[in-house]
Design a binder for these strands. Sequence first.
DNA 1: CATTAAATATTGAAAATTCAATATTTTTAA
DNA 2: TTAAAAATATTGAATTTTCAATATTTAATG
Lengths: 231, 231
Amino acid sequence: MVLNEMAENYYSGFKKISLQFITAEEFKQIEKTSVHLRFKKGETILKQGHQPTHIAFLQSGIVKFNFFSEGNGKNTILTLVSAPKILGGANLFYKDNNLFSIVAVEDCEVFLIESNILFELLKKNGRFAVALFQIASDMFKQSILNFISVANKQKEGRIADVFLYLSGEIYFGTSFNLSLTRKELAEFACCSVENVIMTLSKWQQEEIITISGKKVEIKDINKLKQISKIG
Amino acid sequence: MVLNEMAENYYSGFKKISLQFITAEEFKQIEKTSVHLRFKKGETILKQGHQPTHIAFLQSGIVKFNFFSEGNGKNTILTLVSAPKILGGANLFYKDNNLFSIVAVEDCEVFLIESNILFELLKKNGRFAVALFQIASDMFKQSILNFISVANKQKEGRIADVFLYLSGEIYFGTSFNLSLTRKELAEFACCSVENVIMTLSKWQQEEIITISGKKVEIKDINKLKQISKIG
DNA sequence: CATTAAATATTGAAAATTCAATATTTTTAA
DNA sequence: TTAAAAATATTGAATTTTCAATATTTAATG
């Protein structure tokens, strides 16, 4: 099966990275205590507020980093991540409870690795630790860049940034099947659903994008970049 | 001198942490290649876009993590940090250029440690690496919490969050000499200067705070917390 | 396959925020 | 010490954004 082959590749990507730093014996230790799980669209992989007992390695699929605010019941999407990637942000760094949830926005394959097993290996092997932290920190970088976008730009620039991110970092192309709802796009761009819908309608009229249902095609990416720049 | 004594304590704090993981010999190696510098209010310690050649350890003073946007010339303050703390966020994790600048908002004493020396030690010593990464990741957490505040709350809630943070994490009390200008408060709360000024005037009338020049006293911190909660 | 729920879409009013203009006070630098 | 610059403060108009109401389309569920 194609999917399993891909999963194998992704997994071997993680294995490959790991084996540069730890022994095959040590990697087997990780494998032995890891669980291979599938999550359906919408399911929560790691939950905000829970104890960080596991580190997740995303083999296939797309996930969102979702923060839920008790105060007003609103969600904020900090960033999106597509496989293959180690999902360390929420708990690789902190001893505290998970800052946010990690939720599948498409069907996902995930390896859940026991934190304490991995941490013991990291403590024994500084090179492995440094490498893994550097990989994981990429997601922080993305969250911060999204913060900057939200802080400095108004809705149209922010939505442009979301679509540029989707095109460049998630779907790797200008045509894709959007796995986010308009509500989720709004939670990512930090604006109302109406803003997203109106902006997309406007862009369609201006022939910047074509969008029908979930099918998106970015027709004029330079114009999107310009909108992002203006803010 | 009192200042030097304090600096000595802060420094020995870092030394103390380090010596739990590395040898005295190895720490001497850090010391040997480190520079002890003083920065005046407003001076840049590490600059956005530069190569991350040094890791900074803040011995005394307060710094801001400042992001400058080319597009519109605006600054955003990601978070504030007070001594003693390792300022790893900008470059402890990334090989890339510094994501943001670190700027003194009060006179500071800083140890600049050569990245490659420290990294060699981290690679040799996984326990040290894990410990240092966990300490440094605190600043990411704060940036993300600030993001959440900006994304979900409106100006009054955000400004309340800024003052709660200043009181709880920077000045450790309800009376303090504010080292930020109104413009900087606005850059931290991601709103206009007018919003900050009007909100502070309003709070003064409502006897939530007393503010004259730089002298701030929070009279009713519970009300501030309530404003923060409402958003 | 029918019913319900959820998602998408549009509109105008209401609210929040920024912008522009201007004045006063404080700080900085010559 | 004084002139210039920066910071603080206030106000109303203009703009942006959200909220509320409502309709249509699509997806989910028994």
